[in-house]
């Protein structure tokens, strides 16, 4: 969905530069990582980076993605640890002699706002131990769990807290419940 109203102000150019510069830097770094240090590769690289920047600007949604660095530093170890635990959990269930599965569906209402935060949240649920996001309707997430004995709610609330901190959405949150 293209949104034009954000570019309709008087400092269109400044906004454009401010929005495109980080993307440009990231794509340039990416190209460097992919193509190596050969100077000649930038003959293709510069057009590719420009194209990628303009494409990502035109595809970007209206909700600005502002990732907090502190949140990211907390999120990455949490995510790595949790997904490792998820892997161990699946490995244990797959290799155990008797099948120890007790799957079921759990409903969860998320407080994260519509947009990239919610999408990110739903996609990371699948990497937590024993949970899989099966459906998203509005703010209702249906979660499939491998074992109904697992503390699904507690795990997901912790994930939601981390995602909120990552996306800078703290403040309006859990305490309303």
């Amino acid at each position: 969905m293209p949104n034009d109203n954000c570019l309709s102000t008087s400092h269109t150019l400044a906004t454009l530069v401010r929005r495109s510069l980080p993307r440009f830097a990231i794509f340039s770094l990416l190209w460097y990582a992919l193509a190596g240090s050969d100077a000649l590769s930038w003959v293709i690289g510069v057009p590719a980076v420009l194209l990628a920047t303009s494409l990502s600007l035109s595809l970007a949604s209206s909700s600005r993605l502002n990732i907090r660095v502190a949140g990211l530093l907390h999120f990455i170890p949490f995510f790595l640890y949790q997904s490792f635990r998820g892997g161990i959990d699946v490995m244990h269930r797959a290799l155990s002699f008797r099948q120890c599965l007790d799957p079921g569906l759990v409903a969860y209402t998320t407080l994260l706002p519509e947009g990239s935060a919610r999408i990110f949240f739903v996609n990371t649920i699948s990497l937590l131990p024993g949970t899989l996001s099966a459906e998203l309707r509005g703010d209702q997430v249906t979660i499939h769990t491998l074992d109904q004995g697992l503390p699904v709610w507690a795990n997901i609330q912790r994930l939601e807290y981390h995602v909120a901190a990552l996306m800078g959405e703290t403040g309006e949150g859990r305490e309303n419940l």
Binding site: S83, F84, G86, G87, D89, V90, M91, A94, Q99, L101, P103, S126, L127, P129, G130, L132, A134, H144, L146
Partner: peptide, 18 residues
């Protein structure tokens, strides 16, 4: 081994990504 599509998705996503 897993019995249905959802549990197989669990196995696939988690184990393979990790």
């Amino acid at each position: 081994r897993f019995p249905d599509i959802y549990t197989r998705l669990h196995a696939l996503t988690k184990a393979d990504n990790v």
